[in-house]
């Protein structure tokens, strides 16, 4: 499914100076691999590089060194035009949601399907059902600004799974949810994982991890500590 081989990431510094130059490396020598259907927690202190690692996986940045293979594609050398198809097989819950403010909750969730060119009839049925499942059937036509933080997060979660992605990445997905909603979310992620989706969830929520024990990737200062547990499944 995915394989990191000595991957390093350096963000381009931009801003004050007009010419972009290389900033400090934020990820160093990341090496690990996951089989399809694996589940991983991703944990580490703030600023350790969790989001950066996920950004590599959802193709928002490319590795500056090393080799990253994602669903059979070498991400560092693949041509740009090969990436959109990969992105459509990846669902992402962003730390800051990244919903489109001028679209209703329904249209935000429908967006990945429309980009993929799915038939509108199927879209209406799937999106309606999923939004009901996450408890937003009253808010189909509401814009994100008129939703609470937790409601926005649930819209973002619905958008990430609506395409039944092969890889699901979630960055702090329970930050705005109460315990009940967080449990419901874990149910959804586990269900996705059960039907074959590879799932990586970055979180600070240790209670949640304790309640749902699974192999964990520990990251600190941009380096991966040895991950506990060798198997890809749930720790029973």
């Amino acid at each position: 499914m995915l394989r990191f081989e000595a991957v390093g990431l350096r963000y381009e510094r931009s801003g004050v100076r007009t010419d972009a130059s290389a900033g400090p490396e934020v990820l160093h020598d990341i090496s690990f691999h996951l089989r399809p259907g694996a589940f991983r927690w991703l944990m580490g202190p703030s600023g350790a590089g969790k989001t950066s690692l996920l950004r590599l996986l959802y193709l928002a940045v490319r590795p500056t060194r090393g080799r990253l293979t994602l669903m059979g594609t070498d991400v560092a050398t693949a041509p740009r035009r090969a990436l959109p198809v990969l992105r459509r097989r990846i669902g992402v819950v962003f730390q800051d949601f990244r919903l489109l403010p001028h679209l209703s909750a329904f249209d935000n969730v429908a967006l990945p399907l429309r980009i993929a060119g799915r038939p509108e009839g199927q879209i209406r049925a799937d999106v309606g059902e999923l939004l009901r499942w996450v408890g937003l059937s009253q808010h189909l036509d509401t814009r994100p600004a008129e939703l609470s933080g937790g409601e926005q997060q649930r819209v973002a979660i619905a958008r990430s799974v609506i395409t039944r992605p092969a890889l699901l990445l979630a960055d702090e997905p329970t930050g705005n949810l109460d315990d009940g909603q967080a449990e419901r979310l874990m149910q959804l992620f586990k269900e996705m994982n059960r039907i074959g989706t590879t799932v990586i969830v970055a979180t600070h929520n240790e209670m949640l991890v304790e309640r749902h024990p699974a192999p964990t990737l520990h990251i600190a200062n941009g380096r991966l500590a040895a991950s506990d547990g060798r198997d890809d499944g749930w720790v029973s």
């Binding site: 193709l59 198809v85 992105r87 459509r88």
Partner: peptide
């Protein structure tokens, strides 16, 4: 921002 989001969801340049 909207373009980056749509791009991130797998929209092609042509789209």
């Amino acid at each position: 921002e909207a373009i980056e989001i749509v791009h991130g969801l797998g929209a092609t340049d042509a789209y």
